[in-house]
Design a protein around this nucleic acid. Structure first.
Length: 285
DNA sequence: TTATTCGGAAATTAAAAACA
DNA sequence: GTTTTTAATTTCCGAATAAT
């Protein structure tokens, strides 16, 4: 018989949890495991909520919607702008974010944008691409990143892209921006934000900024900053259990948000021509 | 031989659904 | 309102692996 939740929440230590070992010490601090391993003995701050999230019937309707979307896409992959996006459709639009779009967008980001926004790591980003299959959050991150890139004036998709020659690059950007915002409604990103939640909000901010929609951009930037604070990215202790790459990218993300916010305020008040923000709007090669 | 990692089974929990 | 079912998280056993 395991101890009650209350007891476990009290006694469960961060290091023991991470190591998947029983916390020995009768509630004393530091616990024996931490003493023998020479670790700081800290409590897990906020336990996750257990149990199903949202209505269970939602799963069925989501599956139905997925099938409906799939059927529509098979007949006409990109006639989706207005008709397929219903308020209930929280699932992704099949075929919209294809490898044909992802690869050139990622390439463009690291060639032209990374120098001013070094917030992503190429290998980790490829891992996020692989996660898209089962993670709607990963999907939203990649969709918003691609939208941002596609709004860059110098960004041109290769002719081989399945998007086809009849649509402009920025039109696909609009579709992906809408897709991100719609798909995001399908999960509770507010409750437990992750670094991907921040990336998504930031890329939506960048997209709106590129479209010169200042107010929408501003609100998403503030949202990203709020998530960063919820995740304690402003405290160095937050990074101590993360590997070097994750920690450095999170630090860079936090400072990019911080600087973006400062410059956005200045741009709104006195000087719209600041280089940093121009970099968001026009990443010219 | 000892220490550490981590897959995964079991326990626990909370919310939705079913029932009276 | 109560009970049951379901789907989520948490705990930590013990096998596998690494370090000494």
């Amino acid at each position: 018989m395991l101890p009650s939740t209350h007891d476990r929440n009290r006694s469960r230590r961060r290091s023991c949890h991470r190591r998947k070992v029983k916390c020995i010490g009768d509630g004393t601090k530091p616990c024996k495991n931490c003493v023998s391993a020479g670790l700081a003995c800290t409590y897990n701050a906020i336990p996750q909520k257990k149990g199903p999230k949202g209505s269970r019937a939602k799963v069925l309707s989501e599956l139905r919607e997925n099938q409906r979307q799939s059927h529509l896409t098979q007949s006409s992959p990109y006639e989706l702008t207005s008709r397929s996006i219903s308020p209930q459709a929280f699932s992704r639009t099949p075929g919209l974010l294809s490898q044909d779009v992802l690869d050139p967008c990622i390439q463009y980001f690291f060639t032209n944008i990374y120098s001013t926004q070094p917030i992503l790591h190429r290998q980790r980003l490829q891992e996020t691409v692989l996660q898209m299959e089962h993670s709607i959050e990963a999907y939203c991150t990649m969709a918003s990143l691609c939208a941002y890139v596609l709004f860059q004036p110098s960004m041109v998709l290769p002719q081989t892209s399945s998007f086809g020659p009849n649509h402009s690059t920025s039109a696909l950007g609009h579709l992906l921006l809408e897709e991100t915002i719609r798909a995001r409604k399908g999960y509770e990103y507010f409750e437990n934000p992750t670094i991907m939640t921040i990336y998504t909000s930031f890329f939506i901010f960048c997209s709106y900024f590129a479209l010169d929609r200042q107010n929408a951009a501003w609100s998403y930037l503030r949202q990203a900053l709020t998530f960063a604070h919820v995740m304690n990215l402003h405290e160095e202790d937050t990074y101590k259990d993360d590997d070097f790459i994750s920690a450095s990218r999170m630090r860079r993300m936090y400072w990019t948000l911080f600087i973006s916010e400062r410059f956005t305020i200045e741009a709104q008040v006195c000087n719209p021509g600041i280089d940093f923000l121009q970099g968001l709007r026009f990443q010219k090669t």
